[in-house]
């Protein structure tokens, strides 16, 4: 069942970085880009399990810190390879709380 979770205040994630969250047992990496968009993806790289929240973010791309696999933050689609990530719906509440929808 699809359920929304209020995760944390936007300010808990610095601009251009990601953090890993445990949301009701789901490990989710949440990213805040420098242009203040927020995206949520499965937390670990399907390649070798790298922590994607520790990756480098540029535009709408994140690069895994272990072996430099790139993914599109918007869709989780792999860039230049066939692995892809689960992506979650995100919205900001009127008080700038990050809200994630999990099926």
């Amino acid at each position: 069942m699809r359920r929304e979770h209020a995760v944390c205040a936007l300010a808990q994630i610095p601009p251009g970085e990601g953090r890993s969250f445990d949301i009701g047992g789901h490990k989710v990496a949440i990213f805040r880009t420098r242009s203040c968009e927020v995206f949520a993806l499965q937390a670990n790289c399907p390649h070798r399990g790298g922590p994607l929240a520790d990756g480098l973010v540029g535009g709408t791309t994140v690069v895994c810190p272990l072996h430099e696999r790139a993914f599109d933050l918007r869709t989780g689609t792999g860039l230049g390879h066939e692995d892809s990530l689960k992506s979650y719906g995100v919205r900001l509440s009127p008080t700038n709380t990050i809200v994630i929808a999990i099926d």
């Binding site: 979770h5 209020a6 995760v7 944390c8 300010a11 808990q12 994630i13 610095p14 970085e17 953090r19 890993s20 969250f21 445990d22 949301i23 009701g24 490990k27 709380t97 994630i100």
Partner: peptide, 15 residues
Amino acid sequence: KTPNQFAALIRAAGE
């Protein structure tokens, strides 16, 4: 230097 700089896994607020 940054919020949650050394957090490995943050438990969501509402959980």
